[in-house]
Design a protein around this nucleic acid. Sequence first.
DNA 1: TTCGATGCAAACCATTTGCATTAAC
DNA 2: GTTAATGCAAATGGTTTGCATCGAA
Lengths: 160, 160
Amino acid sequence: MQDRIEKIKEQLHNASYKLTPQREATVTVLLENEADHLSAEDIFLKVKERAPEIGLATVYRTLELLAELKVVDKINFGDGVARFDLRKEGAKHFHHHLVCMHCGSVEEIEDDLLEDVEKKVENQFKFQIVDHRLTFHGICKKCAAEGITIDSLKSNKISE
Amino acid sequence: MQDRIEKIKEQLHNASYKLTPQREATVTVLLENEADHLSAEDIFLKVKERAPEIGLATVYRTLELLAELKVVDKINFGDGVARFDLRKEGAKHFHHHLVCMHCGSVEEIEDDLLEDVEKKVENQFKFQIVDHRLTFHGICKKCAAEGITIDSLKSNKISE
DNA sequence: TTCGATGCAAACCATTTGCATTAAC
DNA sequence: GTTAATGCAAATGGTTTGCATCGAA
């Protein structure tokens, strides 16, 4: 993990951004919680444990900057908060997500399932794809095991 | 178009919602602008031309209700505003979208391109899919013809 | 007549911004 | 020493909510 921090520091440096302790703390928090999909507020709280004087605005500014450098992806599952997802080194695309409509858990899919679909879209619609977003909404393994079914979900809370 | 309004009225009625002139005007506006992806504010302004006394809150409440009945889909392209998309009759899924990163235009894809991918996900991850969201971000035919290239797009403005 | 629906204004809440201060380079 | 970065508080903007009134059934 240490060298991932170093690499990100280097990217900041190459883009002539300053290496502040606040930025370092934010990156560290992101790396430590790679499996989660934290919101800016979540990240702020975790960074605060490590650097209590940090302001929320700085976290927002840092996350924006990291998105610009494609270190993180800003994603939106439709619940009104942006979430931040560390991009795998060298990954060309966002990964896909499985969002459980019952418990809200988010699972990631690393594989790029869309290669064929993308070719089709590029040919058929003459649209040059830069990136994509793919999210499946449904019922996760765990909830299904607990007897949750599609029918037991009431209203259409998918998107917001 | 008239019978689509009738069908939607019937759905409202079946769910024991009242058929108010405001709701009717909102549905009419949605049908008249089916090709667009209007925001609540856009819809409000158009409904206002037809029923000047309507309030923005009513439009929001009506759209929420129509989403619940799966008459419309609430979508979020990451620009901070929800957009509303009339669902095709009997369509099981959201349609996919091609969002141009240069001019912001949104094109729809009616075909369900994800059947194979969904099967794979259901088997591999034991995740029961209810619906999906798929958006491609890139450069549309029109902008490409005007010489816009992927490289001419600067920062990562995809998601917000 | 009754209870859900409406309009208005105020409340909310995630995010952004202005500005004086601080600190990385 | 310069200039970008920070922290704070205020502003923003889409969306929601409380409440008195209204009107569809």
